[in-house]
């Protein structure tokens, strides 16, 4: 199968989730005797040809143009659509990032193909691929296979698939005249980056999350202090977000972000069904709660029954000591 992966970049650096998508694309191609191509859009991004090759792409469609300098659904939709047509793609793969989720439906409609969102597993057998994706925020999973013979697109959930090098000598093919300025109706005027150094929960490998037990906005500091030496992000329950203690972009759960970090530390979070739906696929879960009956302990790998204001600062010290040992 001819498989095309959209490689998302910011400031000329490929997103980790896109490298994961390339690796998954490579594996699917190897199982179906297919060829893997990547499409890279941006300005001054030709170095990414080599990066895409390193993760298994044989061909890289390169749209290196001022019109791709910042993301727009219109320009990127046309760019990826053109690459798919030139390549004759049977399968399109995007990472389910903010950009991927915005872009994939536009491309799918342009190509008149179906799109499966947020895939977390696949199985290639006898030339056909079956995909698994969560529904009800992971309370269940559905397996689906493309209706026979038709091209299709999928988005892959970040942080689920491994990014593995599998070097190929990638050939770059320039995408010329894919877009003209009048095609671009909606434009990104500005990118406001949130507080320096604060990682987004959707991208973090480690999340330290606080709920109603935090008691007030000023106390999130102690979570930040633990997140910092761990290289993690700070998350929250809806109760904390609704109380106005922390921005909604930190909310984890069924109506927040669905995350699957390697480590999720829940502090003062009871473990309501909507919260669990957003984090119960985390590899390791730590619960810190003063109520031994809190449902969060049912999903926790390790639990400490205690006052978070006592436990968390001590944990920060212990983590710092560990990191200092190297």
């Amino acid at each position: 199968m001819k498989t095309l992966v959209f490689v998302e970049q910011r400031d000329g650096k490929a997103k980790k989730a896109s490298l994961e998508a390339l690796s998954a694309g490579r594996a699917i191609c190897d199982a179906t005797s297919g060829t893997l191509a990547a499409v890279v859009l941006g300005q001054g991004v030709s170095v990414l040809t080599e990066v895409a090759g390193k993760y298994g792409a044989e061909t890289v469609y390169l749209g290196d143009d001022a019109i791709f300098a910042s993301y727009s659904t219109d320009a990127y939709g046309l760019g990826v659509g053109k690459a798919a047509q030139v390549f004759g793609a049977d399968v399109l793969i995007f990472a389910a990032t903010a950009m991927g989720k915005d872009l994939a439906p536009r491309v799918a409609t342009r190509l008149e193909i179906g799109l499966l969102s947020d895939v977390t597993a696949y199985k290639a057998e006898n030339g056909t691929v079956t995909y698994k994706r969560p529904v009800y925020s992971g309370k269940a999973y559905v397996s689906a296979a493309p209706a026979s013979g038709k091209p299709y697109a999928v988005t892959l959930r970040p942080n689920v698939f491994a990014a593995a090098e599998n070097p190929k000598a990638a050939q770059a093919v320039k995408l010329e005249n894919a877009v003209v300025a009048s095609d671009v109706k909606a434009v990104v005027e500005n990118l406001l980056v949130s507080k320096e150094g604060l990682l987004d929960v959707a991208e973090a490998d480690i999340i330290v999350s606080g709920g109603r037990g935090m008691k007030g906005p000023e106390n999130y500091k102690i979570l930040e202090e633990l997140a910092k030496p761990l290289g993690g992000a700070v998350g929250a329950s809806r109760a904390a977000v609704d109380a106005g203690w922390i921005g909604h972009e930190h909310q984890v759960g069924q109506t927040g972000k669905v995350v699957s970090p390697t480590l999720y530390i829940a502090c003062g979070i009871s473990g309501a069904i909507q919260h669990l739906a957003g984090m119960s696929t985390s590899k390791v879960i730590v619960a810190i709660n003063k109520d031994p009956e809190a449902p969060i302990f049912k999903v926790a790998t390790y639990g400490i029954v205690g006052d978070l204001f006592d436990v968390v600062p001590k944990m920060t010290e212990a983590v710092k000591a560990l990191k200092a040992q190297g």
Partner: peptide, 24 residues
């Protein structure tokens, strides 16, 4: 429909966890 549904399943149960004890 562009995809054919093959079936549904529940997520695997999480392995049993461990609640620690002793002095904090």
């Amino acid at each position: 429909a562009a995809f054919e549904i093959k079936g549904y399943e529940l997520p695997p149960p999480r392995p049993d966890g461990r609640v620690l004890s002793g002095e904090i």
